[in-house]
Design a protein around this nucleic acid. Sequence first.
RNA 1: GUGGCUGUAGCUCAGUUGGUUAGAGCGCCUGGUUGUGGUCCAGGAGGUCGUGGGUUCAAAUCCCAUCAGCCACCCCA
Length: 414
Amino acid sequence: MAKLQPVRGTHDLLGDEARSHLAIVEAARDVADRYGYGPMSTPVFEFTDVFQRTLGDTSDIVTKEMYTFEDKGGDSLTLRPEGTAGIARAVISGGLRNELPLKCFYSGPMFRHERPQKGRLRQFHQIGVELIGVAEPTGDVEVIALAADILDTLGILEDTTLELNTLGDSESRALYRDALVAYFTGVADKLSDDSRERLTRNPLRILDSKDKGDREVIADAPVFGDYLSAPAQEFFGAVCQGLDTIGLGYTLNPRLVRGLDYYSHTAFEFTTESLGAQGTVLAGGRYDGLIETMGGAATPGVGWAAGIERLSMMLAEPVARTRPITLIGLGEDGERETVRLARTLRQAGLTIELVYKGGLKRGLRRADRINAAAAVMIGDDELARNAATVRDLDSGEQTDVAIADLTDHLAAYR
RNA sequence: GUGGCUGUAGCUCAGUUGGUUAGAGCGCCUGGUUGUGGUCCAGGAGGUCGUGGGUUCAAAUCCCAUCAGCCACCCCA
């Protein structure tokens, strides 16, 4: 702790990076709003139980990635590793069942004690949406469409692939799980160490293994389709059909699995090739069993979350700030006038930068460095005429403008 | 958590087989221009060589540990 450096896997956000994050959140919120998903935020920490009971005792997140600590009262608290559990908790503790369907959009930091890598941090940021109280496949389709529209607004939809799968209902999944365990146990000696471990913890994950030996064994493994109940099949068919209806392309990926236990039925991911090993940019699914697991009345839900850092890395251009107008006051009177004018012009909606010290030359140099569109110069000459010299910094052209007309004149640079 | 690569100025990097005052470009500041930016010219500031230990007459350079970043696995957003 002695060294003055950020904690491993955390990062300071500033400049273009900070601006991009904000822009992503704002763009997403704006689209979500049009879909009727309003803002909601829950605390960054909860009682440990909230996550432990819902994410599943076998998930990596619970077994080794949570930032858990004891507060002064002796309660075990945990920094949220994801957003859904907190919202589900709020539905129960806030009595929100009376207001279903609940449609919410959230954004904020999440914490996981993982080994950092590009696109993988210990404190990272997510945006996400939840649709709670809708059991119909229309809900799944809406939530996926919302995700696609946000990616489209950010200009990165083209760089992603929507992968889709069904995890079925819990009965189907239990049957399939048993079949998988039976099959893989028979060929356990051919499995990788990782996969043998998964056999007891999360057999479905074996299907997603990158190990070459595993791949051969997997090829002959039972397929989920054979175990899917008729209603589960019908549900998934309806989701696919809905996506077809709105013209959203997708790829069926039978090996797409979820790490968190609360998922059922639809699972989807928007993935990309451009981010290296961390190819998942937005992921979600249906979690009909979650709220009941937490002790509430059975309430269906579907949603997704996306990593802002990963989205940000995909943005072609950093989000540029609005080009400002620089005000340069010369001499005591000139400075006083620019201070007064700065406030007036800002209140009129213009982006104004004041030069705090130095003469004309320094002021213009600074204006140039911050990519100002124009410079307004006011010295004794101008004051005597009750005017200002406005210099267009691209063309170098200068105009004499009456101070009273400045707001109108500068509107061209908004 | 496992394995590998890397760590020199704010940024990108150079630094010979260990050898004396550790360099460049960009950026930053000042001046050339008492009221005119970007170009150019001159000058300047800025470095615990990631950190700690060891080997040696001598370490940025070799060894060990540690921290951090990157890559892959794992996992996931």
